[in-house]
Design a protein around this nucleic acid. Sequence first.
DNA 1: GCGTGATTACTCGGATACAAGATGTCCGAGTTTGAGCGG
DNA 2: CCGCTCAAACTCGGACATCTTGTATCCGAGTAATCACGC
Lengths: 132, 132
Amino acid sequence: MKYSKATNYALHTIVYMIEQARNEKISVQKLADHFNVSTTYLSKILTQLVKANLIESTTGVKGGYVLSKKVEDISFLDVIYAIEGNAAFFKCEFKDSKCLIHKTMIEAESLMEEYLQNKKLYQVAQNECQGE
Amino acid sequence: MKYSKATNYALHTIVYMIEQARNEKISVQKLADHFNVSTTYLSKILTQLVKANLIESTTGVKGGYVLSKKVEDISFLDVIYAIEGNAAFFKCEFKDSKCLIHKTMIEAESLMEEYLQNKKLYQVAQNECQGE
DNA sequence: GCGTGATTACTCGGATACAAGATGTCCGAGTTTGAGCGG
DNA sequence: CCGCTCAAACTCGGACATCTTGTATCCGAGTAATCACGC
């Protein structure tokens, strides 16, 4: 039961983009250097963020990635869902919907997700840990 | 980011034991039949619960497992920790302790865990999903 | 009937096998910008 | 100076390799109750 490294990279990437001058495109290359990961790997992660409509990409020379929303609209949960998917943490093998254990676990998860939905990434920008 | 099946089995096993007459030993065999899993696999899971002092085992003929605490003292979180470990969901690769992303994620996790700590398993016993 | 040993019904733990997912790399393809070059 | 071509700088996507973790099985060892047997 752990969040993947990819989620960590995704969160940091978005925060980094928030801290850049607005609407300035940024290349995978630059991000990868900054976080000290391979460009190809990071690009996979960014592709997932694009599919979730959190960022936009423009191809070709001078291409790169830009936030596609107002910074106030990007929550932790948005990024997490984009990378991890939005399936429930817990799934009862048995009677599922009627299972009280299942119900309890879902309630617990909801608490956490509600918090992460209300927490926006721009709130932690600046003074943020910036890779190595 | 998902809880393992083992956690599901563990939670259901404890609930099942709560529903049994108190202090009555129960064998892996019986539990495995009930949940329709292999005895050897379930026994590994139970061993983890023993190590976490949630249940006790007695070996030999007429041996088996019994709860080792009062039912009011067994929380969801106890069982989850026993199986999943108590490591944090999220770990920042970078400056860790100073990272606000990390801090936020830990806060979110704490909310969930607090809920699961206060929720006891006997509260969902009875009317519970009992395997197939 | 009483002690001793064998059998039986259990748990325990190590070794192993398999599958799935996370992590990461490689490479070829498509796309846009801009530079170079010829008329 | 205009238009064409071509290279360069990007993203995109599929295929693949590797590692870790979860799931599951097998088997041999240890342990305690009970049964059987001999004295």
